[in-house]
């Protein structure tokens, strides 16, 4: 009951099951955005998995890797979305940016 390894193992099993379900959605996902969404969730679960593995093996240094993975996961998601929207990863091409009519919402929303 009070063996800490048991509770890490329980959490690890939950993370594994969640990862399995999420990766199924990544392969099934009808639209591209479903896939990006599930890959992002998969990254969050990987962060938890790294932390739990560190505790389970008694080496909490794994948390540095988990923190780094969280950063890379966020940047990767944004990079994929930017590539899909602008078709390039450098400076955004202003003529292809669709969100440019920022003020019209004020007139439309308040009316």
């Amino acid at each position: 009951m009070s063996d800490p390894l048991a509770m890490f193992a329980v959490a690890l099993v939950a993370v594994f099951v969640a990862m399995l379900l999420v990766i199924i959605r990544t392969f099934m996902g009808p639209s591209l955005y479903d896939r990006v969404l599930s890959v992002n969730s998969f990254g969050t679960l990987t962060v938890l998995l790294l932390g739990l593995l560190g505790f389970l093996t008694g080496r909490p240094d794994f948390l540095d890797i988990a923190l780094l993975y969280a950063l890379i996961n966020f940047v990767g998601t944004i990079a994929v979305l930017k590539f899909v929207r602008h078709r390039l990863l450098g400076a955004a091409n202003p003529s292809r940016d669709i969100a440019d009519s920022r003020d019209e919402i004020v007139k439309g929303g308040q009316a």
Partner: peptide, 9 residues
Amino acid sequence: LVIGALGLI
């Protein structure tokens, strides 16, 4: 976590 993943499916 599992409920969220289940919802994703």
